[in-house]
């Protein structure tokens, strides 16, 4: 009983800010896992890492000019997505991703300095916060989720094809460049929703972790996608509970829990391989 009470203290589900956190967190987890599935398929962790991080500069800029944080995040994540898509050549995407990220963060550090005092708001954006999510934020995030669901449903087949067999897809009229740009814009969408909740430092954990783990459990694309969403939602729920219990930032728990799921995935794949190699079919 003591443990249950420690894990689920009063207010976890009933206080109004926690209700906002549950709603926003769940929406962000679904959204991130959805886009993360394609991130993992394409081996695009760096872009998934860079776009939310770059969007931080937008938030810092918003703090400086007194604008809306979410709008700042959206503008900078979209700009960095376009920057990565348009600068990259096929050979050196890593370089251009790094440099676009640096350009954004350079501006971010300037905005922070010019903005004067290091606002707690900025720390919240770096590390994530669950206390400050307003009802308006929740609606905005749900709106972004809706957009992402629509876009993913529409793009599912060509994006899948272009991700697993780009040469064939290109030959059949699915432009690799166009898909890359659309994919990065999806990442920007996920980043805009995730940064206010999970923080700019660790938003990509929620994209890469669940999808990477799901790749070990699921065998078909749709299975993997569904498992990724499930793992993502479980991860954020665990993280919200722990963050509420301990008062520590939610980003840390998201990183830890998704890494544990990924470890389980690798373990599962390893056990499966052992079983197959000593099983009867092997002979």
């Amino acid at each position: 009983m003591g443990i249950v009470q420690a894990l689920f203290p009063p207010g976890l589900f009933t206080s109004s800010f926690m209700q906002n956190a549950w709603l926003a967190g769940t929406a962000v987890a679904v959204l991130s896992a959805l886009i993360g599935f394609f991130v993992v398929l394409r081996g695009a962790s760096f872009a998934a890492h860079a776009v939310p991080r770059a969007s931080f500069a937008g938030a810092a800029g918003a703090v400086l000019v007194g604008g809306d944080t979410l709008l700042g995040l959206a503008i900078f994540s979209a700009l960095s997505a376009f920057g990565i898509a348009s600068l990259a050549s096929r050979r050196d995407q890593g370089q251009t991703t790094a440099l676009v990220l640096m350009a954004a963060l350079g501006l971010g550090s300037l905005f922070l300095t010019l903005g004067g005092a290091y606002a707690p708001e900025v720390y919240a954006l770096l590390f994530g916060q669950i206390v400050g999510i307003s009802r308006v934020d929740v609606y905005a995030i749900l709106g972004l989720l809706f957009l992402a669901l629509l876009a993913t449903a529409l793009l599912y087949r060509p994006l899948l094809w272009s991700s697993v067999a780009p040469d064939v897809a290109e030959a059949k009229g699915v432009s690799r460049r166009r898909m890359e740009t659309l994919f990065l814009l999806l990442v920007a969408l996920a980043a805009t929703a995730a940064v206010p909740v999970v923080g700019a430092l660790l938003s990509f954990s929620l994209m890469v972790g669940p999808a990477a783990a799901a790749a070990y459990f699921g065998r078909s694309p749709l299975q993997a996608l569904a498992i990724a969403v499930l793992i993502g939602v479980l991860s954020i729920w665990f993280s919200l509970i722990f963050a509420y219990d301990t008062g520590l930032p939610v980003g840390f728990f998201v990183a830890a829990v998704t890494a544990i799921f990924y470890g389980l995935g690798r373990l599962w794949a390893w056990l499966w391989q052992i079983e197959r190699s000593i099983g009867p079919e092997a002979a």
Binding site: R157, P158, W161, V168
Partner: peptide, 16 residues
């Protein structure tokens, strides 16, 4: 890669 043989072939049918 979470892709079965049949998923790969199916993309040829309507992947675009």
């Amino acid at each position: 890669l979470p892709l079965r043989a049949r998923d790969l072939v199916a993309l040829g049918l309507d992947g675009a």
